[in-house]
């Protein structure tokens, strides 16, 4: 599983990253996490509001910080 956190590196992106790591830990899942802060790359994925969460190349949320429960839910669906 491949996860991307999109955002220029503001506080919200950091929070989303932490929540994602927590969700993975809770589920006992293993995934590679990539932080994407390049604007062109973010825009190429169609995202206009950051932070955004991408699981296996699919944008699952943008413009808000998901809590670890929501992320866990999305991870199980992926």
């Amino acid at each position: 599983m491949h996860i991307k956190i999109l955002g220029p590196g503001c506080k919200k992106c950091q929070l989303l990253l932490e929540n994602t790591q927590q969700a993975l830990a809770t589920l006992g899942m293993d995934a590679s996490i990539e932080k994407v802060s390049d604007y062109a790359a973010i825009a190429a994925l169609g995202v206009m509001s950051t932070p955004a969460l991408v699981i296996n190349e699919r944008v699952v949320a943008s413009g808000r910080v998901l809590d670890s429960q929501e992320i866990a839910h999305l991870l199980l669906q992926a």
């Binding site: 955002g7 220029p8 503001c10 604007y39 062109a40 973010i42 825009a43 169609g46 995202v47 206009m48 509001s49 950051t50 413009g63």
Partner: peptide, 17 residues
């Protein structure tokens, strides 16, 4: 529309492209 200066760039790119 929710606005914060840190997402004005992706927004600009998204609109223009």
């Amino acid at each position: 529309t929710p606005f914060c200066s840190c997402s004005s760039i992706p927004l600009f790119i998204g609109f223009t492209s």
